[in-house]
Design a protein around this nucleic acid. Sequence first.
DNA 1: TTTTACTGGTCTG
DNA 2: CAGACCAGTAAAA
Length: 142
Amino acid sequence: MLERIVVKWDPPFVLELEDKIAKRGYFGKGEEIILTDFSKRLKRELEKYFKGRPTDFRWVSIEYPSKFERILKEVRKIPFGKTVTYGDLAERLETSPRVVGAALRMNKVPVIIPCHRVVAKRGLGGYSYGVEIKRKLLSLEI
DNA sequence: TTTTACTGGTCTG
DNA sequence: CAGACCAGTAAAA
């Protein structure tokens, strides 16, 4: 059974889960469907996050895209308020910056996998959901 | 300062 | 299958 958490923000953040696994997230409208204590807890954490309080989502299990799991797991280690460059991650994982970008593009659960904390060496870098949202998420974490 | 090569996937025809 | 398209960067031109 699908559950959907909606957190008030501008734009609203929507996260869908199934059996305690985060499957998809996006920014926009959505009807809220919450059933389990697990998703209630997760919603409270998300509300805390969007108020700008330091929060950690490493306890949440995620359905990763087929490839790139290795890269996305590394991204999850980036703490609240800190940023890393595509190049740094590429070096650490022995791949190329383009590939890191490709991996982040496949991220289905923004915020839970904090891909907005990965920036270009000079400048902000891209963001699937729009760079304005990336900027806003980063400004939350100052 | 602009162009090129490198990279490893996904998406489309 | 082949070719186009990327959330980047260093090095050559």
